[in-house]
Simulated scan of single mutants.
Amino acid sequence: MITFATFGPKGTNHERVTGEYIRFHGIENARIELVPNFEHATRGLLNGNFDFVVQCAVHPETPETMGSHFHRMFAVDSFISRSKELAILTRKEVETPRTIGLLAPATESYIEPDRWETLIPGVSLPIIFDNLLNGAYDSALVYLEYAAQFPDRVRVDAILGSPDDVWIVYGRERTSGGKLQASRDAPIRRLLREKGAKFRGEKEAV
């Protein structure tokens, strides 16, 4: 069984995207291990408990994850994936929200922070939403799907949409050979042509 470790708890975007990555490659003997933080994931990878770690590039722990053991743990792949739809949800009994919970600094730029008196950082969107329901703050920047799950508890103040995030896959064996690792078949090739790029060894269309 091949084990991919990623950020939990259950219901995070990390879990969903890791599952999509496994399905994209058609891996039948894979499982996802949800971890409380990426230090746990890193230790597990280096100790051989996990085969790979999947992490969003904008996660607050990414610089430490990538740099802490760069001689033993390597970025072996990267890909682009849309996230779940994000929204600002507010508890229905709150008329004028003054506090908001969010995943800072990753999602802080998605809002106008001056609209709230206090911004309260959280560790994951499922936990932030649980805290919203428990009254820890008036609003939260979380997944839009929660509004449909709890229509009697929260309202949608704003739909923010879904960013195209970059995701990093880590492993113990280097795949790049110390060189640039990219694909000439990637969709960026088409965009480069549209911008007028000319490629060495490629004949121009007549």
Rank of each mutant, 00 (worst) to 15 (best):
V94H: 11
P36N: 02
G19I: 09
L103A: 05
L192A: 10
T118V: 06
L180R: 09
K92F: 05
T3R: 15
E204M: 15
L132H: 00
T18G: 04
A158D: 10
I159S: 12
F50V: 02
G11F: 12
S81D: 07
L86W: 12
R82C: 10
A186I: 02
Y146Q: 09
G161V: 00
P163F: 03
E194S: 06
V35I: 09
G19P: 10
F150A: 06
R31D: 06
D157H: 06
A158L: 13
R174T: 08
G161T: 00
I32V: 12
Y170S: 03
R155L: 11
T42Y: 14
G122A: 04
G11C: 09
Y146H: 13
D138S: 01
S109E: 13
K84T: 07
M73C: 12
S139F: 02
R16Y: 04
A158R: 14
Y146K: 11
L141S: 06
I32R: 09
G178M: 01
I22C: 02
A5N: 05
G8M: 08
N47P: 00
I2K: 00
V206H: 15
G8K: 05
G26L: 01
L45V: 04
F129L: 01
S139Y: 08
R174M: 15
E61M: 06
A205F: 13
E145K: 14
V142K: 04
F50S: 01
R115Q: 11
T12N: 03
A205D: 08
L191H: 12
T118H: 14
P113T: 07
E117W: 09
N131Q: 14
E33S: 14
I168V: 07
T42F: 14
A197N: 07
D130I: 14
E145I: 08
F74L: 04
I127E: 07
D152V: 04
G8D: 00
R43I: 12
S162P: 02
T99R: 07
E61N: 01
S162F: 03
E194L: 12
P36W: 01
V94Y: 10
G67V: 04
P187F: 09
Q55V: 14
E85I: 15
A205S: 12
T18A: 08
P63Q: 03
V54W: 06
T3L: 15
G48Q: 02
G48F: 11
Q181E: 09
G201S: 03
